[in-house]
């Protein structure tokens, strides 16, 4: 555990496997939700880490929170992945792949050595779990991408990625909730608001949720 600002603490899980580290981070957040009254603040899940921001805390309160966190973090050892929580929703996300909706599908296919249809079949054939929400309001980082589709980010990010873009980078798949700059490979596009500040909660996908992509079309032809 590291103190990273006057009133913030960062807990990192050192597991070599991304899934195991994310499982522990999510388990820690679940434990924090139970201890909400004792931990005055908010937290941010990352890829196997949790940042706890306690802006209102006094130094002695912070010391107490730090001790509680150490205890809760230790108790997450061996947390299972995917999380065993039957109540978690499965979201089906309809996607138009390739063409204008997915301008990087052809290049991704060339780089991984499959046809475009095979890339779509593999990407949509997997089940994903939301690891964390970051980058921009409502942006879900999804674990479950088949390893043969892993590619580093694009060399230079696009200044504007359209809202609803379904993308991959490294071990993750993701969906851009709003038009922002972005460096991921764009495979397709979906509709529907992933983020709506008027809704409670504002993000449609939460950590631990399961996601399946359902091809609707590939390069303009019905899938």
């Amino acid at each position: 555990m590291l103190r990273v600002a006057e009133r913030s603490l960062l807990v990192r899980f050192g597991e070599v496997s991304l899934e195991q580290a994310v499982a522990r981070a999510q388990a820690l957040v679940a434990a924090l939700c139970v201890e909400k009254a004792a931990v005055k603040g908010e937290w941010v899940l990352g890829a196997g880490n949790v940042l706890i921001v306690c802006d209102g805390a006094t130094p002695s309160e912070l010391a107490r929170i730090e001790a509680l966190l150490a205890e809760l973090a230790a108790a997450t050892e061996g947390a299972p992945w995917p999380p065993r929580d039957a109540s978690r929703r499965v979201h089906e996300v309809p996607v138009d792949y390739g063409g204008e909706a997915g301008p990087d599908l052809a290049e991704v296919a060339r780089r991984v050595g499959f046809s475009e249809a095979e890339v779509v079949a593999r990407q949509a054939g997997a089940e994903y779990v939301v690891a964390f929400v970051g980058f921009s309001p409502g942006f879900p980082y999804l674990i479950g991408l088949p390893s043969e589709l892993e590619l580093p980010r694009r060399d230079s990010p696009r200044p504007r990625v359209p809202a609803g873009s379904v993308a991959i980078a490294g071990p993750f798949a993701g969906i851009y909730p709003s038009a922002t700059p972005g460096g991921w490979h764009l495979l397709g596009r979906t509709e529907g608001a992933l983020f709506d500040a008027r809704r409670s909660p504002p993000n449609a996908l939460a950590p631990g949720d399961r996601v399946r992509f359902v091809p609707r079309s590939i390069a303009g032809r019905e899938a």
């Binding site: 990352g46 196997g48 921001v53 970051g134």
Partner: peptide, 12 residues
């Protein structure tokens, strides 16, 4: 090595 994405704060 690559760093795993983590929470950040203004002023980082």
């Amino acid at each position: 090595g690559e760093l795993r994405s983590q929470g950040t704060l203004p002023g980082a």
